Amino acid sequence: MPGARRLTFPGASEYLCHTWEKAYQDHRKKVQNARPVVDTCAPPTFQHLHLKLKRLKLEEERLSAIERDNRLLLEKVACVMRTRRQTDSRSNFTHRRW
């Protein structure tokens, strides 16, 4: 019969073919209406990964140690400058031979 519907599977019933066809059409409709689900936005940035508090703390400690050393050196230089002016720089001593 040329006008009769051919079954895909010879043993399948008309009801089963209609159910499969409906399921296939539903699937095709879902595929056509599917929206893209790829996330193209940038990943979230976490503040604790950019701030690096440990590095800041170590840098602050290093700078405070440098400041302390500089202050000590400055005090020593100032002390030397003060005491040199008070000493007698004239050479009026005699050499003794033993």
Rank of each mutant, 00 (worst) to 15 (best):
T83L: 02
P44L: 15
A78L: 07
Y15I: 13
D88N: 15
G3L: 05
S91N: 14
E14I: 15
T19A: 11
L51M: 03
S91G: 10
V77K: 12
E67W: 02
K22D: 13
P10L: 11
H18A: 14
Q47D: 09
A23E: 07
A23W: 06
Q25A: 01
R62K: 10
R97S: 06
A12C: 12
R82T: 11
D69I: 01
E67H: 08
L63V: 03
E14A: 15
H48P: 00
C79G: 02
E59C: 08
R84Y: 04
F9H: 09
L72R: 13
K54I: 06
Q32L: 05
T87H: 01
R71D: 08
L58F: 02
T19M: 14
R28C: 10
R96V: 06
P44Y: 12
L56Q: 13
L51A: 04
Q32I: 02
D88Y: 06
T8F: 09
T87C: 01
A65L: 07
Q86S: 01
E21S: 03
N92P: 00
A65R: 11
K57H: 04
D39V: 10
E59L: 14
F9T: 10
K54Q: 12
R35W: 01
A23Q: 05
V38G: 06
D39G: 03
A78V: 05
K57N: 05
F46K: 12
R55V: 09
A4M: 14
C79H: 07
V80H: 05
R28N: 07
K57Q: 10
D69N: 04
T8Y: 09
S13L: 13
K22E: 14
L56N: 11
A42G: 07
E59N: 11
S89V: 04
C79T: 07
C17G: 02
D26K: 04
L16H: 03
T45S: 03
L56C: 09
D39A: 09
T94E: 09
W98N: 06
A12S: 15
Q32K: 05
F93P: 00
R85C: 02
Q25W: 00
E21G: 01
L73C: 04
E14R: 15
R90C: 07
T83R: 02
T8H: 07
A12M: 15
K52T: 00
K30Q: 10
K52R: 03
L51T: 09
K22R: 15
R97V: 14
R96Q: 04
R6Y: 01
R90W: 08
A34S: 11
H95M: 05
R6D: 01
W20H: 10
S91R: 13
R82N: 08
T94R: 10
L63K: 12
R28H: 03
H48T: 07
H18S: 11
I66K: 13
N92T: 07
L53P: 06
F93K: 08
A65Y: 03
E21I: 03
S91D: 13
K22I: 11
A12E: 15
E60Q: 08
R85Q: 05
A78N: 11
V80P: 00
